[in-house]
């Protein structure tokens, strides 16, 4: 059934349904951060270039700064807050810390969401496939080598 949305919609984020009332021109990033209150997803360039705002929509990576929140209604959204298993860090989180792939940390949530989508699709990626999988995410601290090593290690451990 086609559905018309004026203001009220329900977003499913990390398995929890959040009813929100927003202008339908609002982007998904701002609704996740300011209406739902999950601030792990970051606003970097706000221009679909840097990937800090990356979330998963039905398991696929999406730049939430440039995606309408209303278009995400009825789909499953996963943010960085949804990757931990209880109090256990996700293997990507643990390996990014252990490999030194985190410095200021601002790009890290987006990196983890892109890497999660990559490993779900390609469990044993080549280094080239890891680079392509993270190619929509910028980091100004690490120089990327340690981030790639962390993804490599996560794939090797699985």
């Amino acid at each position: 059934m086609s559905e018309s949305i004026d203001r009220d919609l329900t977003l499913s984020v990390n398995g929890i349904a959040y009813p929100v009332s927003v202008d339908t021109s609002r982007n998904l990033l701002s609704v996740i951060r300011t209406e739902i209150g999950l601030t792990g997803t970051k606003e970097g360039c706000d221009d679909c270039e840097c990937g800090a705002c990356m979330v998963l929509l039905d398991g696929q990576p999406v730049n939430s700064c440039s995606y309408l929140a209303a278009q995400a209604a009825g789909r499953e959204i996963t943010t960085i807050e949804g990757v931990m298993d209880g109090q256990e860090l996700h293997p990507l989180q643990r390996n990014l810390l252990e490999e030194g792939g985190v410095q200021c940390g601002f790009c890290t949530p987006g990196m983890i969401m892109s890497a999660t989508a990559l490993l779900a699709r390609t469990p044993s990626p080549s280094d080239e496939e890891i680079r392509i999988g993270l190619s929509g995410n910028l980091c100004r601290c690490t120089g990327y080598a340690k981030i790639i090593a962390a993804v490599r290690r996560t794939a090797d451990e699985a």
Binding site: S2, E3, S4, I5, D6, T24, A70, Q71, A73, G74
Partner: peptide, 26 residues
């Protein structure tokens, strides 16, 4: 702004005829 999430082509074409513009990935 209003948004129609269309699930059939006929619904989408009717919306376009009424002045709406299409969006896919945005």
């Amino acid at each position: 702004m209003s948004l129609l999430i269309a699930t059939t082509l006929d619904d989408a074409l009717a919306a376009l005829a009424a002045g709406a513009r299409p969006i896919a990935g945005g």
